[in-house]
Simulated scan of single mutants.
Amino acid sequence: MPSTNITPPSLDRVRGCVLGGAIGDALGNPIEFDPTDVIRAEYGSAGLTGLTGLTPDGFAVITDDTQMTLFTIDGLLRGGTTNEASPSAVMSEMYWAYQRWFRTQNQREAQDPPDGWLAGEAWLYHRRAPGLACLSGLRSEPPAPNAPLHGAGPVNPESKGYGTVMRSAPFGLAWGPENAFEHAARCARLTHGHPTGYLAAGAFAAIVSLVARDTGFTAAIEETLTIVARYPDHRETTDAIVRAVNAAATAAPTPERVERVGGGWIAEEALAVGLYCALAAESDTGAKPEVIARALLASVNHSGDSDSTGSICGNLLGARHGRDALPIQWLTHVEHTDAIDAAAIDLASALGTPDAPPRDADYWRSRYPTTGAK
């Protein structure tokens, strides 16, 4: 598999990003559609304080956010992760990767033989409240890969739902900030055509790229805002990021403060809420897992789209601090973290991360074959 021409993130950061997102996703899942007063009535004045809604085996359930993040990794590993990877190559493989995810939402079991290992994972063949724009968008022909990132795209041109952002962290792990922004934004247009929908996805990927490579949040946000400002339709995305930064500089997040930043149902607000809570962790004190736990709880205890804002916050904090800083009591009780972690390790190996296990050509052909039936 090819490797990038920039320094890849450490294995700990790659695993932290992907697993952190899964923790935030599972944490927010049971209260996704609940107003704050309902959450407090159910769980007490502090709101949700840990994983709940567990399976009979004692595991917290992930949603479409983690599902689609895994298929983003799948598409990246088939489409090439070098800085020279063309938009058409990346978009083509990402389109087919998301089609494989789409099949998991509409079939009860994998085809035989499955198109790669991920498509053969039986536990993915369950609907977990997928975004309607993601579903409808994948029934459409993909947009032109080299079309300018300006104005509405042809697929769901008025949609700027959170579904673009919550799946885009792996782009930041794969590339430097500018390429991460560009590829994430273009691939977001596969399902969401509103400029804010795809530019917010690009901004998220750029921030992940920078913090995963040891840039602090403040500098990462400043650099990302410079990138976003090059695009004519950037204002809503820029304003949302600035709102998150200002909120974090003012006070620690409470449900009411989070809701003033956004609800998370649309792309720029999902990014802003996740970023606000991640930024709040930077000024917190205590052991890292405790700090990250408090930030993740803040990112889900509100009236908005709790699983997506939790997932985004978890991606950011995991990319910044690594797997070893995640709350182990939650990490060990999220479903299928073995498979989620395996995808992250494969990505790190493909990126040429020095501490990732080496893979031979037979391994890649078996796990990530050339895209199959189309």
Rank of each mutant, 00 (worst) to 15 (best):
residue 113 P to C: 09
residue 27 L to M: 04
residue 306 S to I: 06
residue 11 L to K: 07
residue 121 E to M: 14
residue 138 L to Q: 05
residue 262 G to H: 01
residue 6 I to V: 15
residue 326 L to Q: 07
residue 51 L to E: 04
residue 148 P to C: 05
residue 70 L to C: 13
residue 206 A to E: 02
residue 218 T to M: 06
residue 228 V to K: 00
residue 300 V to L: 03
residue 374 K to V: 13
residue 112 D to N: 13
residue 132 L to N: 15
residue 256 E to V: 14
residue 251 A to E: 15
residue 263 G to S: 11
residue 290 E to M: 12
residue 65 D to S: 08
residue 211 V to D: 00
residue 148 P to E: 07
residue 9 P to K: 05
residue 355 D to S: 13
residue 302 H to F: 04
residue 254 T to K: 03
residue 295 A to D: 05
residue 85 A to M: 08
residue 298 A to P: 00
residue 201 A to I: 05
residue 247 A to E: 07
residue 302 H to V: 00
residue 191 T to W: 02
residue 143 P to V: 00
residue 211 V to R: 02
residue 314 G to T: 04
residue 159 S to D: 14
residue 109 E to Q: 15
residue 367 R to N: 11
residue 160 K to D: 10
residue 129 A to D: 11
residue 170 P to F: 01
residue 329 Q to K: 12
residue 112 D to T: 14
residue 256 E to R: 11
residue 370 T to Q: 13
residue 257 R to H: 12
residue 181 F to S: 04
residue 293 A to K: 11
residue 6 I to T: 14
residue 154 P to S: 10
residue 302 H to A: 01
residue 124 L to Y: 00
residue 222 E to C: 06
residue 331 L to R: 14
residue 368 Y to M: 07
residue 374 K to T: 13
residue 161 G to I: 04
residue 85 A to Q: 12
residue 161 G to F: 06
residue 151 G to C: 02
residue 239 D to I: 11
residue 292 I to D: 01
residue 96 W to F: 13
residue 298 A to G: 09
residue 99 Q to V: 02
residue 48 L to T: 02
residue 84 E to A: 13
residue 45 S to C: 05
residue 87 P to N: 06
residue 146 N to D: 15
residue 259 E to I: 08
residue 42 E to M: 14
residue 71 F to C: 04
residue 48 L to K: 07
residue 286 G to P: 05
residue 194 H to Q: 11
residue 257 R to I: 06
residue 41 A to S: 14
residue 92 S to C: 12
residue 157 P to D: 02
residue 297 L to P: 00
residue 202 G to C: 06
residue 191 T to I: 06
residue 105 Q to Y: 05
residue 292 I to R: 02
residue 321 H to D: 08
residue 155 V to P: 03
residue 304 G to K: 08
residue 121 E to R: 15
residue 280 A to F: 03
residue 107 Q to H: 14
residue 144 A to W: 04
residue 255 P to D: 07
residue 48 L to H: 07
residue 52 T to S: 15
residue 48 L to G: 09
residue 320 R to Y: 04
residue 50 G to E: 11
residue 274 G to W: 03
residue 192 H to D: 01
residue 93 E to L: 08
residue 347 L to R: 00
residue 259 E to P: 05
residue 334 V to I: 11
residue 161 G to W: 07
residue 341 D to E: 15
residue 253 P to N: 00
residue 79 G to K: 01
residue 260 R to L: 15
residue 369 P to F: 06
residue 14 V to T: 00
residue 155 V to T: 04
residue 74 D to T: 06
residue 160 K to E: 09
residue 267 A to M: 10
residue 83 N to F: 08
residue 273 V to P: 00
residue 254 T to M: 03
residue 81 T to H: 10
residue 130 P to D: 13
residue 122 A to Y: 12
residue 314 G to F: 06
residue 57 D to Q: 15
residue 37 D to I: 13
residue 290 E to H: 09
residue 300 V to E: 01
residue 90 V to Y: 05
residue 314 G to A: 05
residue 99 Q to N: 05
residue 39 I to T: 09
residue 58 G to V: 10
residue 22 A to I: 09
residue 338 D to P: 08
residue 135 L to W: 10
residue 340 I to Q: 03
residue 301 N to L: 04
residue 13 R to N: 13
residue 7 T to P: 07
residue 92 S to E: 15
residue 274 G to Q: 02
residue 108 R to E: 15
residue 31 I to F: 01
residue 336 H to F: 15
residue 299 S to M: 01
residue 72 T to P: 05
residue 140 S to K: 12
residue 109 E to F: 14
residue 271 L to Q: 03
residue 249 A to Q: 13
residue 15 R to A: 10
residue 125 Y to S: 11
residue 182 E to W: 08
residue 159 S to K: 13
residue 166 M to P: 06
residue 264 G to R: 04
